[in-house]
């Protein structure tokens, strides 16, 4: 696949086009689920989340020559998509929240899929900032990294992480019964 007329516009050497496409495909494949998971925690309409991610990835492809050098492009993707999402919400000027339609809490999970559903269910009940900080921490990002991705102060990241964990323990206690963390 060759598209010579693009090369001049994007300052991208023609011979790199296919290679970048391949790398980019791999980026999307490796990061999309995680980025989408973090963004969906705001309770926003999924179309809005999808459009924000699409835009972030479009920028990523356009500037792939630079972004491919980043330590972990996932952080940049989330930061950019998160900002797009917030900007679009501010522009829309109205609530874009979905109506509260939480399905009944799943019980004790039997496999990884059920565990993931339960985890999502719990996170959905947290304030979005807490949930996102927690999710990024689970993903292995450090506190300063999380602060830079979400545009938060260090003390805020520490607090949200702590608060999220406390609330999740409570929820786990409610779902899993007496032997869970809340009882400790």
């Amino acid at each position: 696949m060759s598209h010579p007329h693009h090369a001049a516009r994007w300052d991208e050497p023609e011979h790199l086009d296919d290679r970048y496409d391949t790398e980019f495909n791999e980026l999307v494949f490796q990061t999309y689920a995680k980025a989408e998971g973090v963004l969906r925690l705001g309770g926003d309409h999924q179309d809005l989340v999808r459009d924000a991610l699409h835009e972030a990835y479009l920028i990523a492809r356009r500037k792939w020559a630079e972004i491919r050098e980043f330590d972990a492009p996932l952080g940049w993707v989330i930061k950019t998509a998160h900002n797009v999402l917030r900007r679009e919400k501010a522009k829309a000027g109205r609530e874009t929240m979905l109506p509260e339609e939480l399905p009944g809490a799943p019980g004790t999970p039997a496999d990884s899929w059920e565990a993931e559903q339960l985890r999502r269910h719990w996170l959905g009940q947290l304030p979005p900032r807490q949930a996102r900080v927690f999710e990024l921490a689970e993903e292995g990002f450090t506190n300063p990294e999380i602060g830079r991705i979400l545009g938060l102060a260090d003390s805020s990241v520490r607090f949200y992480k702590h608060a999220a964990r406390r609330r999740l323990r409570e929820l786990a206690g409610e779902t899993l019964g007496g032997d869970a963390d809340a009882a400790r």
Binding site: A33, T108, P109, S112, L118, R169, D181
Partner: peptide
């Protein structure tokens, strides 16, 4: 089962 057990189990989840 505790919170951490659930998180650990969920971490093994791979996209379908």
């Amino acid at each position: 089962m505790r919170l951490d057990d659930v998180l650990q189990l969920a971490a093994a989840h791979r996209p379908s």
